[in-house]
Design a protein around this nucleic acid. Structure first.
Lengths: 85, 85
DNA sequence: TTCATTTACGAATAGCGTAAGGATG
DNA sequence: CATCCTTACGCTATTCGTAAATGAA
């Protein structure tokens, strides 16, 4: 479970579009699409419904989202703790 | 920030030995040693003091440990949420 | 010498970008 | 046909195990 994948997930869910989120995350559009697929494969469930106007969270995606946000927050705190003087 | 790395970190800290923790995690001993080094490099701090009788947490390692445990717990909850019916 | 970790190195794997493909309005 | 997302493919970087090296008691 890589926090970078969760970060991509959260960003895409907020923007509602892979192609739009990609540059914001520093990825190419297909690269980000692959990342989302990797996350879905690892979790064993579909997080987004795809459409020609972007993506939308599935119910499962909605359920997972808050946990992803918590993971990102704790990861930040962990890193901060590691670098404290 | 990969939760698998944190899992290795916690396990090694509990067992107090890389060589002993390795089989429990399904890794070779050098493989686990490399994993710990990878985590330390990514966090930018040393987590263990190495000795000829095993390893011991540094102060920084002690500080990071509870966050690692939280990460693992939240990751489990996230996965459970993803697979719920 | 024994038991611990690290380093070296080669093979397999994963990650990412470019280019092409498919689908929908 | 314009705009999404996906697939294909190649290259690079990461990962992990085996073997050799290092260090301390």
């Amino acid at each position: 479970m890589d926090v970078a994948l969760l970060h991509a997930f959260v960003q895409v869910s907020e923007i509602g579009s892979i192609s739009e989120a990609a540059p914001a995350l520093g990825y190419s559009q297909p690269g980000l699409s692959q990342r989302i697929q990797t996350l879905e494969r690892r979790l064993g469930c579909r997080l987004f419904e795809r459409g020609p106007l972007g993506v939308r969270l599935t119910d499962r995606g909605e359920a997972v989202l808050p946990y992803a946000r918590i993971m990102i927050g704790v990861a930040d705190a962990l890193r901060a703790e590691a670098r404290r003087d």
